[in-house]
């Protein structure tokens, strides 16, 4: 397999792993981690695209995406902390008061 193909496979594979993690984990931090994996997998794909197509803009896009992912993580962790402050084993499915 060519190196591009390998990177593509890795990106897709990571994305899949991340999705499964987001689907199955119920600990809020674990969910956020899985989502980070997904975001980075997508980023990898963008970098691949930049490499294959020789597009410098896409490379800077990848860096910007890193920043966005970081911002997302900060807010997510902050909210998780505020929500599950007192719980030793937080379960996201238990926080289901807003529904209907």
């Amino acid at each position: 397999m060519s190196s591009e193909g390998l990177v593509l496979a890795t990106a897709v594979g990571l994305f899949a792993i991340g999705s499964v993690g987001a689907l199955l984990h119920r600990h809020p931090v674990a969910m956020l981690m899985s989502i980070e994996v997904m975001l980075n997998a997508a980023n990898l794909l963008i970098v691949l695209g930049a490499r294959v197509r020789g597009l410098a803009d896409a490379e800077s896009a990848a860096l910007i995406v890193l920043v966005l992912a970081a911002a997302e993580a900060v807010i997510g962790l902050g909210l998780a902390l505020a929500l599950f402050r007192r719980k030793l084993v937080p379960d996201i499915d238990e926080a289901a008061e807003v529904r209907g």
């Binding site: 997508a42 794909l45 963008i46 691949l48 695209g49 930049a50 197509r53 896409a58 995406v65």
Partner: peptide, 9 residues
């Protein structure tokens, strides 16, 4: 973002 990557590709 995944879609963005695909579009770039």
């Amino acid at each position: 973002l995944f879609g963005l990557g695909l579009v770039i590709l």
